[in-house]
Amino acid sequence: VKPGQGEHQLQYSYCMWFSKRTPGNKASSTNYEQNIKTVGCFASVEQFWALYTHLARPCDLTSSSDYHLFKQGIKPMWEDEANKSGGKWIVRLRKGLASRLWENLILAMLGEQFMVGDEICGAVVSIRFAEDIISIWNRTSSDVTISLRIRDTLRRVLNLPPNTIMEYKTHTDSIKDNSSF
């Protein structure tokens, strides 16, 4: 993708993906890859809005759905080259907050608010039965300085209360226990 004439180019191009886990299907990386579909890619602010405004808001999705917004070339999978040594910050949200906080999160990512070089890989919003979860993925889970900067930026851009619990999980741990959260 390329920005159109007169459009505001983003630092990186991104692709939006959507996945929905079918009930009764055991999680595995094979059916994960089958269940995840690209929704669209964009390189400019205008292209982002043109896509985003046509998508259902996270709060209107049914349970077990996820949006994944990743830099172009990075698959939203633990095993991807960019992700395999990485991890993610996880914030659990009570129902009703996901749409607004997801928008704030992705605007911060697209606008390069995290200030961690090319460390950010993407962001995910996960709609579940009793809670929703947003997460932001980075390349190098072993770099504490980077991960703390991401956490602090996340807290600021989401305007989270100081007592909000934020968990960091490496993708190798996710692979080991075959679980995202």
Binding site: E7, E46, W49, A50, T53, L107, L110, G111, V157
Partner: peptide, 21 residues
């Protein structure tokens, strides 16, 4: 090199630009 940084409000303002629709 220089990074392209956009504040939230700037991005919001572009939401209604004709190119975004």
């Amino acid at each position: 090199g220089t990074r392209i940084i956009y504040e939230r409000q700037f991005l919001m303002n572009l939401r209604d630009s004709p190119l975004a629709r």
